[in-house]
C-alpha cells in the first residue's frame, strides 16, 4: 500500500511536470500577449521596455526554466494582467470561493442525483422511473446560463428573497442560487449514471436470485447493489468535483462570483503566463488527487479488485 502511494505520488509529480511544459509552450504560441492586448495600443518603444522589465524579452529557454524554478518553489510569480499582483494572492482570494461553491453544489448534486437514480432503477420502466428521468433530462437539457438567470430573476428581482449576484462568505443566502444552479445540472448527470450503473448490477445473477426469493424492497436494493451500482457515478464525480472547485465560468458570470474561473479565462485572453500556469498547476493537482481518491473509492466499492492486488 505504501509503495503504491509513493508510486502514485511520483507519477503525480511527473504529470505536473509534463502539464507545465505543454501549457508553457501553448501559452507561448498564443497570439497577442499581456502588453499587446491593451484596448489602447501601447507604443512600441514603451512595450519593449515593459517586456524587458518582466523578462519577456529573454530567450524562451531562459523564461521556461525561470518559470519552472518559481513553480517548484511554490510561487508562480507576478500576474501580468493584474499587473504586479502576486498570483498566490489572487488564487488565495478566489479559491475559497470556488471551493465553497463546489462543495455546496456537489452536496446538492449527490443528495438529489444518487437517490433519484436508485429509485428510477428500482422501479425501472414505470411512471416513477420515467418521471425521475424526465426531471433529470430537464436538468441536462436546460443549460446553466438559462437556469441561473431564471432563478436569479425569480428569487432576486421578483420575490426579493435571495441576492441576484455577489458573494458574501458570512451569508449563505448569497451562494444558494449559484450552488443550486450548479448542483441541479451535476445532479442530473449523476442520477442518469447511477441508474445505469444500478441496472447493470441488478441484471446480475446474485441480485436476481435475491429478487426471486422475494426480497425486492428498496432496502435490499441499497444493501446489495448500491456499492457496485454507483461505480460509474463515482468515476464521474472525481473529475467533475475537481472541475467545479477550480472555477465554473458560467456560474461566476451569471452570479458575479469572484471565483477562479473568470480569472483563468481573462488571463488566457491576454496570455498572462504566470497566472495561467498557476491555475493549471492547481487544477492539475486537484485532478490528480481526485482521480486518486476515485480509484481508492473504486477499490473499496469493488472488493474483488482489492483481492487481486
Amino acid at each position: 500500500m505504501l509503495a503504491n502511494l509513493i508510486g502514485r505520488f511520483l507519477q503525480g509529480i511527473f504529470v505536473l511536470f509534463v502539464l507545465f511544459t505543454v501549457t508553457f509552450f501553448l501559452i507561448k504560441a498564443l497570439p497577442g500577449g499581456p502588453f499587446k492586448s491593451a484596448e489602447k495600443a501601447i507604443p512600441e518603444h514603451i512595450r519593449a521596455k515593459i517586456e524587458a522589465y518582466y523578462g519577456l524579452d529573454q530567450p524562451v529557454r531562459v523564461q521556461y526554466f525561470r518559470q519552472l524554478g518559481n513553480l517548484v518553489q511554490g510561487d508562480p510569480g507576478l500576474s501580468l494582467r493584474l499587473e504586479g499582483r502576486e498570483v498566490t494572492e489572487i488564487i488565495s482570494q478566489a479559491f475559497p470561493v470556488s471551493l465553497r461553491l463546489g462543495i455546496a453544489a456537489m452536496t446538492i448534486a449527490m443528495c438529489l442525483g444518487i437517490p433519484l437514480g436508485v429509485v428510477a432503477a428500482w422501479r425501472k420502466n414505470t411512471l416513477m422511473d420515467y418521471s425521475a428521468m424526465a426531471l433529470a433530462m430537464v436538468g441536462i437539457c436546460i443549460p446553466a446560463f438559462v437556469i441561473g438567470p431564471l432563478l436569479a430573476d425569480q428569487f432576486g428581482r421578483r420575490m426579493n428573497l435571495l441576492p441576484a449576484m455577489g458573494w458574501d462568505p458570512t451569508d449563505p443566502s448569497s451562494w444558494m442560487l449559484p450552488a443550486l444552479t450548479l448542483g441541479l445540472a451535476t445532479g442530473a448527470y449523476l442520477s442518469r449514471l447511477t441508474r445505469a450503473g444500478m441496472l447493470e448490477i441488478l441484471s446480475q445473477d446474485y441480485i436476481r436470485t435475491a429478487k426471486a426469493k422475494g426480497v425486492g424492497s428498496l432496502r435490499m436494493l441499497i444493501r446489495h447493489s448500491l456499492r457496485g451500482g454507483i461505480i460509474p457515478a463515482v468515476a464521474f464525480i472525481g473529475p467533475a468535483f475537481a472541475g467545479i472547485i477550480s472555477g465554473s465560468v458560467v456560474i461566476e458570470s451569471v452570479f458575479a462570483m469572484p471565483g477562479l474561473g473568470l480569472h483563468f479565462i481573462k488571463s488566457i485572453e491576454v496570455g498572462d503566463a504566470p497566472m495561467i500556469l498557476g491555475s493549471v498547476m492547481l487544477y492539475g493537482t486537484l485532478i490528480i488527487i481526485a482521480n486518486f481518491l476515485t480509484d481508492l473509492l473504486g477499490l473499496w466499492l469493488n472488493p474483488r479488485l482489492r483481492a487481486s492486488r
Binding site: G7, Q11, F14, V15, V18, L19, V22, T23, L26, I27, A29, L30, P31, P239, A242, F264, I265, I268, I276, V280, Y283, G284, I287, I288, N291
Partner: peptide, 25 residues
C-alpha cells in the same frame, strides 16, 4: 493502466481554451 490514466490526467488539466484558440488559428 498507470501510463494511460496519467495521460488522461494531463489532458484533463490542460487548458482546453488555449488549445481551442490555437486549433482555430
Amino acid at each position: 493502466d498507470a501510463v494511460m490514466m496519467r495521460i488522461v490526467d494531463i489532458l484533463y488539466a490542460l487548458p482546453f481554451l488555449i488549445v481551442v484558440i490555437l486549433l482555430g488559428k
